[in-house]
Write a protein that binds this DNA or RNA. Structure first.
Length: 283
DNA sequence: CACCATGTTCCTTG
DNA sequence: CCAAGGAACATGGT
């Protein structure tokens, strides 16, 4: 499901539902999801712990834990990978086919579902240390950001996917941000002018904020009986309401007219991943 | 059968 | 030492 906006929307959804909940039992159906820790340690540390809040950093979900026995972790980290979802469901409802971890909260189940299995849960917070600025924070200024782009000859689109450059941008919003800023994804990062960097930083913020606004304005149901979510890319079924039209301006719109100038959107491959841009608006 | 897919890490190459 | 590219992880949709 995830890039920054989707994780942010999920965090806002989960926080009031999980805050104050006590974990009665943890069921690990796919041990590989718990990494790089072992499943037994994980289970032992979470038994009877209380969640005091849910936050986000980049695409990580951060679950704050009430202090437990000496040496127990204060923070649980979750990452959804490409296809992870989380939701609460009644205990008597059947579990999703790819339910990988289930937290028994007594009156409800908190389910982590992940068909492709790229997501994970851990207490290991080292990956957070290397993350770049949150694009929606005040610390994300063009002047500061410029320094991290100055030394790379890589295409700017590829740099945007590096979490140490800016946190939470994925393949969809990288293309979307560059289109909004009118910058070619192929431009070498170190050749961007300060004016372009300023424009791109603003575009990133706008694109992400718009996506979050859209998500919070929709009646979302993250439950297993509603795999559509309308908002999220993965798991849409024919009978669920379609996502709002023109949610993306370039992503996955190969050959369709650019909404600004009408030129057909082009697909290319950079660092092994699809890039979408308008050959006319983005130079 | 082929190719594609929202992410991240690790290994190899230069 | 670093930068950059590609494979790997695993499953499902078209």
């Amino acid at each position: 499901m995830p890039e920054l906006p989707e994780v942010e929307i999920l965090v806002r959804h989960l926080d009031p539902l999980l805050r104050g909940s006590r974990i009665a039992r943890v069921e690990i159906l796919r041990p590989r999801t718990i990494r790089p820790l072992d499943a037994d340690t994980f289970r032992r540390h979470l038994d009877h712990r209380v969640i005091t809040g849910v936050r986000r950093r980049a695409k990580y979900l951060l679950f704050d834990l009430e202090p437990g026995p000496a040496g127990s972790p204060r923070l649980l980290l979750g990452h959804l990978g490409m296809t992870g979802r989380m939701y609460l469901q009644p205990p008597d409802q059947p579990l999703a086919r790819h339910g990988v971890v289930v937290f028994d909260l007594g009156d409800r189940l908190w389910v982590f579902e992940d068909p492709r299995g790229f997501g994970h849960l851990t207490f290991e917070d080292r990956p957070l240390a290397g993350l770049g600025p949150e694009p929606l924070s005040a610390a994300f200024t063009p002047a500061a950001w410029r320094l991290s782009l100055r030394h790379s000859r890589q295409p700017i689109k590829v740099r945007l996917l590096d979490p140490s450059v800016v946190a939470g941008i994925g393949n969809i919003y990288a293309s979307e941000s560059l289109h909004r800023a009118g910058i070619s994804p192929r431009r070498a990062a170190h050749r961007l002018t300060l004016a372009e960097i300023t424009r791109l930083a603003a575009a990133i913020r706008e694109v992400l904020e718009e996506a979050i606004r859209l998500g919070t304005s929709l009646p979302l149901n993250f439950g297993p009986a509603n795999p559509g979510d309308a908002l999220f890319y993965y798991g849409r079924s024919p009978d669920t309401p379609a996502a709002p039209t023109e949610r993306f301006r370039v992503y996955d719109r190969t050959g369709q007219p650019c909404l600004r100038c009408g030129t057909p959107i082009r697909r290319s491959v950079q660092a092994g991943r699809s890039t979408f841009d308008c050959p006319r608006c983005q130079r």
